[in-house]
Design a protein around this nucleic acid. Structure first.
Lengths: 154, 154
DNA sequence: TAATAAAGTTAGGAGTGCCTAAATTGTTTC
DNA sequence: GAAACAATTTAGGCACTCCTAACTTTATTA
């Protein structure tokens, strides 16, 4: 059932990845994450959060004692940061290259981030670097694509 | 629970989309699809297929009577074709633009296809058209990126 | 500090999607 | 056409992830 994937060698479900990422972002914004913050961010009910946190706790990815705050463990923090990096790379690509509005780019990224391979993400990020660089071979083709796209269906 | 998504207005699970797509491809290659073909293509056991086909049958997307062949209904065929178009667009993008080898492009596409929005796919396909065209603003930047990428880490 | 409100947990249940084992039906082949 | 084999279905179970309702703990405040 376990597939080598991140530094501790386990493959998390999309759902648990979402929880981890939420905790990461809440911690970043507010230092501590509470169950209700996680619930409202993910649009689930409190008991769902309790269950998920228990799973993450068993896996050693969060620290949590009853009725208290939730904190990412060191490993949990690393994994969450990885997930968020993927999220960012995808969002940037969808927004800057494809020209999706930022909201849509984020929500699409949020779903795709769980099913994309690391190599693909790496290439996506590299392509972005290449495409927006005025000095590399492409000379700002992201910009050019968006101009072309706007004219396209006229 | 239903979200407007395709022409009959329902959102299928990733799993059911996979079944539909498999049947579509088997039908294309061999005219009729049998349960065991579907099972082996998806890497699941026969009872899993029986269950999934029952669900698709209830939704009116396949025709199937006990111990017989499976056939896509008209609606099922349209939805499957849509799914496959997304699959192709994604695969092409990952292979031609990002330079992933075809196998990896396909397997990544296979997972991403369930979570990407139609608008994003459209833009991806348009970007591909733009990027490989020698006449449009980009002048074959897909090619240039791949050359740059190969040199990158040297 | 006792009452109330807010946050969190427990209990129990539903839907999905997979599995194994066992029964059934269909197809060959002698 | 009956035995043997292949394909499919049924039965039963498990993991995951969500839910509602009810209960417990913690925080607020009058």
């Amino acid at each position: 059932m376990f597939r080598l994937q991140n530094e501790i060698g386990l493959k998390l479900s999309s759902s648990l990845e979402d929880y981890l990422e939420s905790i990461y972002l809440i911690q970043r914004d507010q230092t501590v994450a509470r169950m209700k913050d996680i619930a409202s961010r993910l649009g689930v009910t409190a008991p769902s959060v309790t269950g998920a946190i228990k799973s993450l706790n068993k896996l050693g990815l969060v620290e949590h004692s009853n009725y208290g705050y939730v904190k990412l463990s060191e490993t949990g923090g690393k994994i969450a940061a990885d997930i968020f990096r993927v999220h960012q790379a995808l969002t940037d690509f969808l927004h800057i290259i494809l020209g999706l509005d930022y909201q849509k780019a984020e929500s699409d990224a949020c779903r795709i981030e769980h099913s994309i391979e690391p190599e693909t993400v790496r290439r996506l990020a590299d392509f972005l670097e290449f495409a927006i660089s005025p000095s590399k071979g492409c000379k700002g083709c992201a910009q050019k694509f968006n101009e072309w796209y706007l004219e396209k269906d006229k």
